[in-house]
Design a protein around this nucleic acid. Structure first.
Length: 372
DNA sequence: AAGCCGTGGTA
DNA sequence: TTACCAAGGCT
């Protein structure tokens, strides 16, 4: 890596901010520096693209205009507002933090990076963003953009996937950033990172800071940032059981922790659990498989079902670390069936249109429409 | 430290 | 299709 002189640092600040003053993006959350606005946008933007966030942010501000409104909101309404954004613990933490501010702090925001990180869902990046943008504190906001931009500018060889890299980048950026305009500096770095200095197809030849971009100058831009790879999603096969009576589906609520916590889906049964009932799982035929599945449902839920496979191909849905492969089967259940052992309830199509559903459930329901 | 936690877009 | 990315935080 290289180091800049004081003169270079001053020149970089001026070049960056001059560019930002003219070319900075106009975004809904940049109309003012209200901590509430900065906060909501920063949480939504975690691992999520700007274009995806914009409509969510606008609806959110209409429904929950202030931190008090958010603190007092029914959780179902909040989840409906977040539906489709993913990483749903962000929404739950959002309300936790809103309650912290309203109930424990008399509506007062913590105004320092340290204080902000005491709020649920606010880590080092988001705390730096809020502190610098809303409270003008000269602290870096090191997100993926900042890692990438500074790794290239200075040819920093640290693996940005490793936690130790963060404090080192923070120290480097602290020295470089504009002490009088910290919020604008941090946002300018993000705009740079999402325009000229993107991960895949950067356009450094036209970048306002190309003269400062050592990796570009040396023709090794694509070697930065150094980032170790993550493991592939693990494939998991399920049977999705569609039990319909007139206008209702028998739905199952997911556990309160873990993937898609508390969301409603069709009952999902892991193929592994079904095959575990066989002494020779590798020899199970399709017909036996169906029998084993019906047996498991009898044992676990006390439901006597006759299952009929639906459609040809299973529904696939990929999360960050899992790929679900779901084979749909339909069944009828007797009107007087005992549902006391079944961990779920009947939901009408009306209700299903009202509550928040995860994308994978919507895919399953879509498949239902297509195979009818 | 490394795995968990969603979704949509792009090459 | 696969692979990887996009303004991370929590455990």
């Amino acid at each position: 890596m290289i180091e800049w002189s004081e003169n270079q640092i001053h020149a970089f600040r001026k070049t960056l901010l001059d560019w930002y003053d003219v070319n900075g993006r106009q975004l809904p959350w940049r109309q003012d520096h209200e901590p509430y606005h900065v906060w909501i946008s920063e949480i939504m933007l975690q691992q999520t693209q700007v274009n995806t966030v914009i409509p969510y942010y606008q609806r959110f501000m209409t429904e929950f205009p202030t931190v008090s409104d958010l603190a007092a909101a029914p959780e179902a309404k909040l989840m409906k507002a977040w539906e489709g954004l993913g990483y749903y613990s962000r929404a739950r933490n959002l309300q936790k933090a809103a309650k912290q501010i309203v109930n424990e702090r008399g509506g007062q925001w913590p105004k320092t990076v340290e204080g902000l990180q005491e709020l649920a869902g606010i880590g080092p990046y988001t705390a730096g963003a809020i502190a610098s943008i809303a409270f003008n504190e000269p602290v870096p906001a090191v997100d993926g953009n900042a890692f990438r931009v500074f790794a290239r500018l200075l040819e920093i060889d640290l693996d940005i996937a490793k936690p130790q890299a963060r404090p080192i980048f923070e120290k480097i950026i602290e020295r470089i950033m504009s002490p009088d305009r910290p919020g604008d500096f941090n946002q300018a770095i993000m705009d740079l990172g999402s325009s000229y200095m993107t991960a895949k197809n950067p356009d450094s030849a036209h970048s306002p800071v190309k003269a400062f971009n050592q990796a570009y100058i040396d023709g090794v831009e694509m070697q930065y940032p150094v980032k170790s790879k993550k493991p592939k999603p693990v494939k998991v096969s399920y049977y999705g059981i569609v039990i319909r009576q007139n206008d209702q589906f028998l739905m199952q609520k997911r556990p309160s922790e873990g993937l898609l916590a508390n969301f409603w889906t069709f009952p999902l049964i892991a193929e592994d659990d079904v095959l575990a009932l066989s002494k020779t799982p590798e020899l199970v035929t399709d017909e036996e498989r169906l029998n084993l599945l019906e047996q498991l449902i009898r044992q676990e839920y006390g439901l006597h079902l006759r299952l009929v496979p639906m459609g040809a191909k299973p529904v696939k849905h990929t999360f960050t670390h899992r790929q679900w492969i779901i084979s749909l089967l339909s069944a009828e259940v007797a009107p007087d069936a005992d549902l006391s052992f079944f961990p779920g309830k009947w939901l009408s199509t009306q209700e299903l249109n009202t509550i928040a559903l995860p994308k994978v459930q919507e895919k399953l329901m879509q498949r239902l429409v297509n195979t009818k």
